[in-house]
């Protein structure tokens, strides 16, 4: 049992509070009112408490200053430096890094494009040669046979994209490497004669000294610097059927591609 300088025990204090709060049953209330009439000191205490309660409850509400919300917002931002809120973080921390990343990617892409103009041309040339190989000359075997002259056949057909590339010139991913030799074999049209190879040899020799031309019976082998391969294919690869292409890595293989033109 607790008392203080009022000398009133907890039980009595709770009864008084219940009476003031109207939380007594009728019986309890009647009993308490009887106690009040018998005890003038209790009566005075009760009245004093009631008046005190009245004064406290009459206190006006104190309102926060007008700029309170703004001040809180400012304090949060200052302390968190934008970490508390999503969009704050977006604008204060993420965006600069994202912008930096985009700019860096753009610069790298630009540098790559400027440094490999031949690659783009090479790809275009290959596509052109590929189209010709697919279409084939008049009277040539059907497209499927043309794509799979080595009988890569069903295996290649089932391999989807790989199959499509089986009879095509080197895709960009296997563009000439310094240790590889790329070999192309073109078959001249069926109505071409032996002198067509001679003419081609003359034409090649007249065009550039960079091409090493070797004439043998029914064949014309040309060694082309790999860097010039795309231009070569553009200038001389048109009108012929691409019969075979292999990529090898011979010992001492260098920066060259070998192209063979063969009579039908």
């Amino acid at each position: 049992m607790t008392t203080d300088n009022t000398g009133i025990p907890d039980e009595v204090a709770i009864r008084i509070m219940d009476f003031l709060d109207g939380e007594m049953s009728d019986e309890e209330r009647s009993a308490f009112e009887a106690d009040l009439t018998r005890d003038p000191e209790l009566q005075r205490s009760l009245e004093a408490l009631q008046s005190t309660m009245g004064v406290v409850q009459s206190l006006q509400m104190k309102f926060a200053p007008d700029d309170f919300v703004r001040e809180v917002e400012s304090k949060v931002r200052t302390r968190s430096r934008g970490r508390f809120f999503g969009y704050q973080a977006l604008y204060t921390s993420r965006i600069p890094y994202e912008v930096f990343a985009v700019v860096a990617i753009a610069i790298m892409a630009g540098m790559w494009m400027m440094s490999s103009p031949d690659d783009a041309r090479f790809s275009a040339d290959l596509a052109m040669v590929s189209d010709q190989a697919d279409a084939g000359p008049a009277g040539a075997p059907d497209a499927g046979a043309s794509r799979n002259p080595d009988g890569a056949g069903a295996q290649a057909d089932g391999a989807g994209a790989q199959a499509a590339g089986a009879g095509l010139p080197t895709p960009p991913s296997v563009r000439p490497l310094k240790t590889e030799v790329i070999e192309y074999t073109f078959t001249l049209p069926a109505d071409a004669g032996a002198d067509d190879l001679d003419k081609l040899a003359v034409r090649l020799g007249a065009t550039s000294r960079r091409y090493v031309v070797e004439r043998s019976k029914g064949e014309l082998d040309v060694t082309v610097p790999a860097a010039s391969l795309d231009g070569f294919l553009r200038d001389f690869g048109q009108g012929y059927t691409l019969e075979r292409k292999t990529v090898t890595a011979p010992d001492g293989g260098g920066d060259v591609a070998k192209v063979r033109f063969r009579s039908p």
Partner: peptide, 12 residues
């Protein structure tokens, strides 16, 4: 309740 009673008494 009892604490409130004593608080009000002290306030008075």
């Amino acid at each position: 309740k009892s604490r409130l009673f004593r608080a009000r008494s002290a306030l008075k």
